[in-house]
Every structure is written in C-alpha cells, then in structure tokens.
C-alpha cells in the first residue's frame, strides 16, 4: 500500500499532464502551470528540511570533532550570519514588507561583496580547467582524436583576428577555405548534425523513461524495486 499509492498518484498526475498538452480547455489547459506552482510551494517548505539537514550534518561533525571539522564551523557560521542578516533585516528597512536587498542592508552587502566575488572566483577557475581538459583531449592518439584536434584547431583559429588575417588573401572563389568560414561550417554542419542526433535520442529516452515511471514499471525513485 505504501508503494502503491504513490504509483497511482504518479499515473494519474502523469496521464492528466500529458492530456493537458492537447486539451487547452479548462480545467486541463492550466494544469501544467498549476502543478509547477504547487511544486514551487512544496520546494519552499522542503528548504526547511535542507537547512535542517545542513545544520545537523555539520553540527555533528563539530560536536564529534570529525576530521576537517573547522570547515563545518565556517559553513555553519556562514549560514547563521546570512540567515540572521536576512531574517532581521539588519541595516535595512525593518518589518515584514522591508526590502531585504536594499542598498546598505547587511544581507545585500554580504551578498554583493562576499558571496558574489566568491562565486565569480569559482566560475573563473573554469578557464584553467578548460585549458587542462583541452590539453588532454586534443592529443592525436588515433585517427578520431586527430580529426578532433584538427577541428578544434580550425575553430580556435577561426575565432581569433590572426585566423581571419591568415587566409584573408584567398580569392573570392576560394573564400570557403578561409579559416573563419571553415570554423563556421564545422560548427553549423557536422557539429549541428551530431547535436541533433543526440537531441533526437534524448527526446526518445525521455518518452520511454516517462512511460516507465507513469506505468509504474520503474519505481526505483520511490525507493522500491520495480513491480
């Protein structure tokens, strides 16, 4: 019973949502939007679970002096400071309607001058990771890797002023051989064809997966084996 009720709910909700795509008449037409709103409401309450879990896990680590526990102190301290700054609107307009993000409020300052730079730093690291991954991926180990290397070389060169200058002398009938044009062709023909093939596969995979879940054939997400 504990597993059957969720399967029945999934079947009804899944079927109704599929029907609602084709039937615009009320009450079907608005169902997709309404269910999305219900999900958001549930997600807001579920956030309390997340915050509780965060405090429990890191609180335990601090209490038991777990390995690397000082990191947990930073996590709990950061969470607490941001929560107090937000809940009590320190430095901002008080009251329930006061703007949390008004300039000068502690929450806004912490967000703008601590959190945003930290996020930007993490994002900036991507440049170095792209370089190291490219270095490894673009080794001409076999035929396929060599083709990949050449394609990457043309695209990289085609996006630089040097690449434009390098072949700009070519006469008009041979302009298709200019590096920026070759780069553009690689992106819009073979690359696009590959991406579309992947997208078709994804669409079919989603259909099969959705049917397995709606029909109750796949129940792992409910914490159960299949029927």
């Amino acid at each position: 019973m504990r597993r059957q009720i969720p399967v029945v709910i999934t079947f009804i909700v899944g079927s109704v949502l599929i029907i609602s795509v084709f039937i615009p008449h009320k009450p079907f037409g608005q169902l997709g939007e309404n269910f999305s709103v219900y999900f958001d409401i549930i997600a807001v309450f579920a956030f309390i679970l997340g915050a509780g879990n965060l405090l429990r896990v890191h609180g335990n680590r601090i209490y038991k002096k777990h390995k690397d526990w000082p990191y947990s102190v930073v996590t709990v301290a950061g969470f607490t400071v941001m929560m107090i700054a937000g809940l009590f609107k320190i430095g901002g307009s008080p009251g329930i309607t006061g703007d949390l993000t008004e300039p000068g409020s502690m929450f806004e300052d912490l967000y703008m001058y601590v959190f945003t730079p930290l996020m930007a730093t993490m994002f900036a690291l991507l440049a170095f990771y792209v370089a190291s991954a490219s270095h490894r991926a673009f080794r001409a180990k076999n035929k396929e890797a060599t083709v990949l290397l050449l394609a990457a070389f043309v695209i990289l060169l085609g996006r630089t002023p040097f690449g434009v200058e390098l072949t700009s002398w070519l006469p008009d009938p041979l302009s298709f051989l200019e590096i920026p044009n070759l780069a553009s062709w690689i992106m819009s023909v073979p690359n696009m064809a590959g991406q579309r093939a992947i997208m078709v596969g994804i669409a079919l995979g989603v259909i099969a997966m959705a049917l397995r879940v709606i029909l109750g054939v796949e129940r792992t997400y409910l914490g159960a084996d299949s029927e």
């Binding site: 997208m199 596969g201 995979g205 259909i207 099969a208 997966m209 049917l211 397995r212 796949e218 299949s226």
Partner: peptide, 27 residues
C-alpha cells in the same frame, strides 16, 4: 543523452524495463 535514461533499465536487467528501450527504436 539517451543512455542516461536507459541506464536504470539497463542496470536492472528486467525484461519489462529493457522492453521499453526496444520501443525507443521505433521512434
């Protein structure tokens, strides 16, 4: 892509789940 959605059925090895993967071939 599609291998992600096929993974659970593939790992289960159950005929019913694998049948759904076969149905994708029609698509």
């Amino acid at each position: 892509g599609e291998e992600l959605f096929a993974a659970s059925a593939y790992l289960s090895g159950e005929p019913k789940q694998l049948g759904s993967l076969k149905g994708q071939d029609v698509g």
